[in-house]
């Protein structure tokens, strides 16, 4: 096998089809960047789920003087109400599900509120008695929130029972939809990349039809005839895949770590190591698709 010949042919083919090659590079670059972004989103969702679901608690908000009358006809929750709830949390039905719980009175709730909204002007208008007294319940298994919700909803003196996971699920649904959209776009673009590669290979083969004719005539092996075309397709898509890998790393480095992580300091974002892990996968996918498309295209051309 003469590698010199093969690479000479590849270089010639790439030069002759430069505009097609550039478009293959761009299309694979963009489509794989979308694939990579979708993967990043999924990983981010996974990481946030781990982080937040662990911390998600169920809040039992007790009635305050500001509570709406239909939920709290008897006004501010009495000490009896608190004792009943505490007893219920400790009885044998609920105890196995509860890891721990704690109670915040108006002042404690207010100081926590001030901590969470530090620097926000809303802290100036809110007073301690506006904030509900709350039982915070941490469950052994965060997905058991419904048990607490059902046990305490409608109980006298309880304004509302809220599972924090329901907030999180909304966020995750949005992120999931975004990553599905990215995958959808990526699939369409990958499909056009495949068509583009096979068109380019056919065109390249057509412009070298004399050489191919002679090679078949004198008995060059099929592999030898096909190899330059396959390398041509793989090379172009490989460059696009590398760019896509670089783009994914850049997104994590500059957008996620550089922008999001500094502006949303309490969120656990994916790091550069995750992106570096994705890069070879993206490259592999690109090369594999291009090799398949090229092989099919050149085999079909040669059979025709």
């Amino acid at each position: 096998m003469k590698l010199g010949y093969v690479f000479g042919e590849v270089a010639q083919g790439l030069k002759r089809n430069l505009s097609m090659v550039v478009s293959i590079i761009l299309v694979t670059f963009l489509s794989l960047t979308f694939v990579g972004t979708a993967a990043l989103l999924q990983l981010q969702i996974g990481q946030m789920k781990n982080f937040w679901y662990d911390r998600a608690q169920v809040a039992i908000y007790l009635c305050s003087t500001y509570s709406p009358a239909e939920a709290c006809p008897q006004g501010e929750a009495s000490a009896d109400v608190k004792a009943t709830i505490e007893a219920k949390l400790n009885d044998s039905t609920l105890k196995p599900y509860v890891e721990k719980y704690y109670f915040l009175n108006h002042d404690q709730a207010f100081s926590q509120f001030k901590k969470e909204f530090a620097g926000n002007t809303v802290t100036k208008y809110v007073t301690a008695d506006q904030l509900n007294e709350t039982f915070w319940v941490k469950l052994k298994n965060p997905s058991d929130g419904a048990i607490i919700t059902q046990s305490f909803s409608g109980v006298a003196g309880v304004e509302e029972v809220r599972d924090q996971r329901s907030y999180l699920d909304q966020i995750f649904n949005v992120l999931n939809a975004a990553s599905l959209a990215a995958i959808g776009i990526a699939v369409v673009m990958l499909f056009s990349a495949i068509l583009l590669i096979s068109t380019t290979i056919r065109q390249s083969a057509f412009s070298r039809r004399r050489e191919i004719g002679i090679m078949r005539l004198v008995g060059a092996s099929n592999f030898y005839i096909q190899l330059p075309f396959i390398i041509e397709g793989v090379f172009a898509a490989g460059v696009g895949s590398l760019l896509a890998g670089g783009a994914v790393v850049a997104i994590v480095q500059f957008f996620v770590q550089g922008y999001l992580a500094t502006n949303l300091p309490f969120t656990n974002f994916i790091g550069i190591s995750t992106a570096l892990l994705l890069t070879p996968i993206i490259f592999g996918v690109g090369v594999l698709l291009a090799a398949t498309a090229s092989i099919v295209a050149i085999k079909r051309y040669l059979r025709a």
Binding site: K2, Y5, E211, I214, V218, I225
Partner: peptide, 8 residues
């Protein structure tokens, strides 16, 4: 030479 090169 080409036809010899391509058969290795």
């Amino acid at each position: 030479a080409f036809c010899l090169e391509v058969i290795g």
